[in-house]
Design a protein around this nucleic acid. Structure first.
Length: 676
DNA sequence: AGCACGCCGACT
DNA sequence: GTCGGCGTGCTC
C-alpha cells in the first residue's frame, strides 16, 4: 500500500513539525487536497512532495478522502510555502493552510465540484477597446529594460506622478501576451478598487480577480479557484495574495514596495515583498517593485546590481513637485507654537488657499482629540488600567479610549483621584486640530479623514468624493490620506508635527517619515496649471535635520545614501540581519526569564561563534497590553545564512523550554522585524 | 489549535 | 458519591 506525506494545519507550538505519513490505496499526486484522520477528528491536508519521511513504525491510518475535482497545487507553490515556513520559522502546515481559502477546507469533493461548475459564470468585465496613452521616454526606457532582462527582479524608482501605474499596465500586457498570468500586489485593501477599475478598463476581455481579507469566504474561494485553474489572467491583492496558486505566473508587481503593510504582523510574520522576489526566481517570473521612496533594502539591492534599477524622475505633464518650506518653530512666538500648533506662516498659507478657492491638506499622525487627559490639581493622567499607555480623549463621543486594548470609558466629569473638576486635554490629535482650524479659519469648510471617521464601510469613498467635488477647503487627516489618493485641487500640504519620528527609538522611523512626507508632497500640484503655486509646509523644531534637507530637494537618493551610511555604522539592515524573539507572560519577570533561558540555549548552540549576537531581553516599548506583559530579545548577524542556521537549530529547542516557565503565555519569532 | 485524559471542590 | 474546573500532552 503506498504511503503519502500529508501536511496538516498544526500551529507553531505543536510538536508536529513536518508532514505526517498516511496509507493510501493509490498513489496520490503531490499538491492534492485530502481529508485525513488526526487524533479523534478528520482534517484537511495537502499531499506533500516526498519528504523521504522515516517510517514511524506503527501502522499508518488511511487517507479518508481525496478532493479529486481540484487540480493539485503546483510544485512551485509547495516550494514557496516550504521556503516561507523555513525562513520565518513556522510549520509548513500552518503556512500552507493559511495560504488556502478557509472555505476550501470545509468542502468535500461533491461540494467542490459544485463550486467549480459555478465558476464558469466568472467572465471578463467587457467594454470598449482601451485608448492607450502615449508613453513618456522614461516609461519606454523602463519597459525596454524590463523586457530585455530575462525575468529580472527590477526596482522601479519613479516620482509620484511619473506614471508608474502605466508601466505596470504595459508590463502586465506583455506577460498576458506571452500567455502568462500577472500578480499585482498593493499594500492596502483601500487601494484595490481604484486599481481594479483601472485594470478592468485596460483589459476588458481578460478575467481579473482580487484576493484580500475584505472578501466574503465564498468570494475568496471563487477568486482563488479562478487563479488556481488559470482562468483568471490578472490577480490583484494584498500581501496574502503572494501565496495565490498561479499555474502560469509570468509577472509579479509590488506597488509601493516600501509600505510596511507588506510585512505580516501576526501568524507567520512574512514579508510579501520579499516572498514575491523569491517566488519570481522560483518560477522564472519577472518581479517589478515600484515606489517613489523605495525601502532601503530594495534600494541597496539595486545599488549593488542585484536588482535591475529603473528610474523615472520626471512628473508627467511637466507638473513640478511642490516647493517644500520649513517653518522653524523655534522662531515662532511661544504662545502660538505651544498652544495652537498652527504657526503664523501656516495660517497665512492656509488663508491664501482659501482666498484662491484651492484646497489644503493638513497632516497629523495622531487620532483623537488629545493623546492624554490630565488633572490640574493632582498628578492624575488618563492611563489605561490594562496597558502601559495613555488612553486617548475622543471628544466626539466623550470617551477615553485605549488604542492598544480597546478599553473605552466615558470621560469622567472630575478627576477620579482627587475630585477636581478641572481636567484638561494635553497635546493634540486630528479632532482637536480640526476644531482649531475651524475656529481659526471662519467660513472655511474643514473636514477630517482618519480611522475614526472611516470606520463604517464606504465612508472613506464618500468622504474622498466630497473632497474631489470641491466641498472641502481644508482636509485634516492621518497618514491614511497621504496614501495613493490623488487630490487634484490641493495646492498646500502641511505637516503639523512630524518631528517625533526623527528621534524615535525605532531605527526605521526616519525612513517611514521621509516616505510619508514625499508621498504627501506628491498629493499636491498634480495639476500642472497649479503646480507652480503648490507647496508643502513642515513645522519643525529641527529645521537643520538632514532628512528635511533631502526632502526640500526632493532628493530620495541623498536621503538613502545618508541613511544607508548610518545603518552600516550601526550594524542595522540592510547591512545586517535581525530577528526578534518575543515573549508574553503574566509578569515582566516571567517573560524576561524565559528569554534569558532561550538565550542560554542559543549560547550553547554556539551563537557567538556563528557570528550571531544576542542582545539582552528588554521590555517592549509598551510593556503591558491588555494585562499581558511583553518582552523581547534582539538577534543580529552580518550573515543571513548564519542567522537562519542558528534559528533552525534553536527554535525546536525552544518548544521544549515551555514547561519550566510558569506564567509564560505565548512566544513568537519575528524574522526581519520592521520595528525593534 | 482541538480534544483528550486527569486529578481536586460544590451539587443532585 | 458525580459534574466539571482547566492544567499537561498528543495527534501519522
Amino acid at each position: 500500500m503506498p504511503t503519502v506525506a500529508v501536511v496538516v494545519d498544526t500551529p507553531q507550538h505543536s510538536t508536529v513539525r513536518g508532514p505526517l505519513s498516511y496509507a493510501a490505496d493509490e498513489a496520490l499526486p503531490a499538491g492534492a487536497l485530502v481529508q485525513v484522520p488526526l487524533g479523534r477528528r478528520t482534517v484537511c491536508g495537502i499531499v506533500w512532495p516526498a519528504g523521504a519521511e522515516e517510517e514511524p513504525g506503527v501502522e499508518l491510518k488511511p487517507v479518508a478522502g481525496v478532493l479529486r475535482s481540484l487540480p493539485p497545487l503546483p510544485a512551485s507553490w509547495c516550494r514557496l510555502v516550504e521556503f516561507a515556513a523555513g525562513y520565518y520559522q513556522r510549520s509548513v502546515g500552518e503556512v500552507a493552510h493559511a495560504a488556502l481559502p478557509a472555505e476550501l477546507r470545509k468542502l468535500d469533493d461533491a461540494q467542490l465540484a459544485q463550486r467549480l461548475k459555478k465558476l464558469a459564470k466568472l467572465a471578463p468585465a467587457g467594454g470598449p477597446a482601451p485608448q492607450l496613452p502615449e508613453l513618456t521616454e522614461e516609461q519606454v526606457r523602463a519597459l525596454e529594460a524590463l523586457a530585455q532582462g530575462g525575468a529580472p527582479t527590477a526596482l522601479l524608482h519613479g516620482s509620484t506622478g511619473s506614471g508608474k501605474t502605466e508601466v505596470y499596465l504595459r508590463a502586465v500586457a506583455q506577460a498576458l501576451q506571452a500567455g502568462r498570468q500577472a500578480l499585482v500586489l498593493v499594500p492596502e485593501i483601500n487601494l484595490t478598487p481604484q486599481l481594479e477599475a483601472r485594470f478592468a478598463e485596460r483589459f476588458p476581455d481578460r478575467l481579473i480577480v482580487s484576493l484580500h481579507s475584505g472578501l466574503t469566504p465564498a468570494q475568496r474561494l471563487r477568486h482563488w479557484l479562478a487563479a488556481h485553474l488559470g482562468r483568471a489572467d490578472i490577480v490583484l491583492g494584498t500581501r496574502m495574495a503572494v501565496f495565490a496558486s498561479l499555474p502560469r505566473l509570468g509577472l509579479v508587481v509590488v506597488d509601493e514596495e516600501h509600505d510596511p503593510s507588506y510585512k505580516s504582523q501576526e501568524g507567520a510574520r512574512y514579508s510579501a515583498r520579499d516572498l514575491a522576489v523569491y517566488r519570481g526566481k522560483l518560477e522564472g517570473a519577472t518581479v517589478l517593485l515600484g515606489s517613489a521612496t523605495p525601502s532601503l533594502e530594495s534600494w541597496y539591492q539595486a545599488q549593488r546590481g542585484r536588482y535591475l534599477k529603473l528610474s523615472m524622475p520626471t512628473r508627467i505633464g511637466g507638473g513640478a513637485l511642490p516647493r517644500v518650506r520649513l517653518v522653524d518653530m523655534n522662531h515662532v512666538p511661544k504662545e502660538a507654537a505651544f498652544s495652537h500648533a498652527l504657526s503664523p506662516p501656516l495660517m497665512e498659507a492656509l488663508q491664501q488657499r482659501l482666498a484662491r478657492g484651492e484646497q489644503s491638506l493638513v497632516l497629523l499622525n495622531r487620532r483623537g482629540y488629545a493623546p492624554v487627559l490630565q488633572c490640574l490639581e493632582c498628578a492624575w493622567k488618563s492611563g489605561c488600567p490594562h496597558c502601559s499607555a495613555w488612553r486617548v480623549f475622543h471628544r466626539s463621543d466623550r470617551t477615553l479610549r485605549c488604542h492598544h486594548c480597546g478599553y473605552t470609558e466615558r470621560v469622567p466629569r472630575a478627576c477620579p483621584e482627587c475630585g477636581n473638576p478641572d481636567i484638561q486635554p494635553l497635546g493634540r490629535g486630528t479632532e482637536r486640530l480640526e476644531e482649531q482650524l475651524a475656529v481659526s479659519l471662519p467660513g472655511a469648510r474643514v473636514a477630517r479623514i482618519d480611522a475614526d471617521t472611516t470606520r463604517l464601510k464606504g465612508t472613506l469613498e464618500s468622504q474622498l468624493a466630497s473632497v474631489h467635488a470641491g466641498e472641502v477647503d481644508v482636509l485634516v487627516g492621518t497618514q491614511m490620506v497621504a496614501k495613493g489618493h490623488d487630490f487634484r485641487r490641493v495646492t498646500l500640504v502641511a505637516a503639523v508635527n512630524p518631528d517625533a519620528a526623527l528621534f524615535s527609538s525605532d531605527f526605521r522611523a526616519g525612513e517611514r517619515l521621509f516616505a510619508l512626507l514625499m508621498q504627501a508632497a506628491g498629493r499636491a500640484g498634480r495639476d500642472a496649471a497649479q503646480a507652480g503655486r503648490s507647496e508643502m509646509l513642515i513645522q519643525t523644531w529641527h529645521p537643520t535635520h538632514p532628512l528635511y534637507a533631502a526632502l526640500r530637494a526632493h532628493d530620495y537618493e541623498a536621503f538613502a545614501a545618508e541613511t544607508l551610511g548610518e545603518r552600516e555604522m550601526a550594524g542595522l539592515p540592510p547591512h545586517a540581519h535581525l530577528a526578534l524573539l518575543r515573549a508574553e507572560a503574566r509578569t515582566q519577570e516571567a517573560a524576561q526569564a524565559w528569554l534569558q533561558d532561550a538565550a542560554r540555549v542559543a549560547d550553547e548552540l554556539g551563537a557567538a561563534a556563528a557570528g550571531v549576537t544576542l542582545y539582552p531581553p528588554v521590555p517592549m516599548s509598551i510593556a503591558r497590553v491588555a494585562n499581558v506583559e511583553r518582552a523581547q530579545m534582539l538577534l543580529e548577524a552580518a550573515s543571513r545564512p548564519a542567522l537562519q542556521r542558528l534559528l533552525s537549530a534553536w527554535l525546536p529547542e525552544l518548544h521544549g523550554l515551555r514547561g519550566a516557565h510558569k506564567g509564560l503565555l505565548r512566544w513568537a519569532i519575528d524574522v526581519d522585524p520592521l520595528a525593534i
